[in-house]
């Protein structure tokens, strides 16, 4: 329990730092919110007036304090581009992207674990070489390449799945899944390759351990030895790497969502950056950071479930 508190506390601290950094960076960039609202050709007096009303002439620290206060009380401001309140906008886009991240993680894990274990069991034989080189291929190619390939194959070629667009799961669940499938696959392939290599490396080490030999000496059959005794020990490390990859996925969705015209967080952030929508940039960076950290916290807590050695009283 004190471990969880400890983690939550350090997470708060990190979030605070992130908020300060994003706020500072967006303020250093040329152009401010007033200019964005009124355009570059606007009347200097009106601009100054707007700056005054928006409080842009206050010291940075005061502005930062106002922003943090707003974030904490649920008043996240409005997007300049979308002319909408930011909080519900982010919630909707985060749901869309969360779907992608979950799908791609599920695809990656369900393929990577069996493949990695299989490669480890046949370590240094053709099966291993095959699995490892396939994984290497996946790791070395960027995911937009897989995106283009998938569009060509499944959308253009076979016509099984839509090549772009987003459907809200609340409106039509089936269509939502169909639209999410290709971008998830594009994200998941690289991830899968990475996790396969990780699973293989972890399992190769575990299968050399004495307790595996002991399990065999007890007369357990080989599948119990590998899939229960072995894999139970690999779950923790693989899960940790998967958790760290959530951060990488949120980086990748900026490209993939734009490629598939999938209007989630990545697409939103990209639009915000393109249009210098400063309040939206600040809020979305903050939300992405919070989600990534939350994912890692969950992984760490799950670790304690799968490995009794780190179960803390």
């Amino acid at each position: 329990m004190s471990y969880i508190l400890n983690r939550v506390f350090s997470m708060m601290l990190t979030l605070f730092l992130i908020s300060a950094i994003t706020f500072a960076v967006t303020n250093i960039l040329p152009g401010d919110v007033a200019m964005m609202i009124m355009g570059t050709q606007s009347n200097p007096e009106a601009l100054a007036g707007l700056r005054e009303t928006l409080g842009l002439n206050d010291p940075l620290l005061v502005q930062y304090g106002r922003w943090v206060g707003g974030m904490l009380t649920g008043d996240w401001g409005s997007s300049l581009v979308f002319k909408e309140p930011i909080a519900p906008l982010l919630l909707q886009k985060m749901t869309a992207s969360g779907l992608l991240v979950l799908f791609s993680m599920a695809i990656a894990l369900t393929c990577a674990i069996p493949l990695g274990v299989w490669a480890a069991v046949h370590a240094n034989r053709w099966q291993d070489t095959a699995a490892s080189s396939t994984a290497m291929l996946g790791v070395s190619l960027p995911d937009f390449f897989w995106g283009i390939m998938l569009i060509l194959l499944f959308a253009r070629g076979l016509g099984w799945l839509p090549s772009s667009g987003f459907v809200d799961p609340g409106d039509d669940l089936g269509a939502a899944v169909r639209h999410a499938l290709l971008p998830s696959l594009a994200l998941g392939l690289g991830l899968m390759a990475h996790l396969t290599r990780m699973t293989r490396a972890t399992m190769t080490g575990i299968l050399k351990q004495e307790f595996i030999r002991v399990a065999r000496a007890k007369g357990l059959n080989e599948s119990t030895v590998v899939w229960r005794y072995g894999l139970a020990n690999a779950v923790g490390p693989v899960m940790t790497v998967a958790g760290l990859q959530v951060g990488y996925l949120f980086g990748s969705i900026i490209v993939i969502e734009s490629l598939f015209n999938y209007t989630g967080m990545g697409w939103l952030t990209y639009q915000a950056l393109l249009n210098r929508d400063i309040p939206l940039i600040q809020a979305s960076v903050f939300v992405i950071a919070a989600v990534v950290m939350l994912a890692n916290l969950i992984v760490d807590l799950l670790y304690a479930v799968v490995d009794p050695r780190i179960r803390l009283s």
Binding site: Q209, E210, F211, R213, V214, A215, R216, A217, K218, G219, L220, Y229, A232, N233, V306, D307, P308, R309
Partner: peptide, 19 residues
């Protein structure tokens, strides 16, 4: 194995499954 022939190994620290 384990029924007719039982076996003990050298390293008690590593011969039990930690999880």
């Amino acid at each position: 194995r384990g029924d007719e022939i039982g076996m003990i190994f050298q390293e008690p620290m590593t011969s039990l499954n930690p999880v």
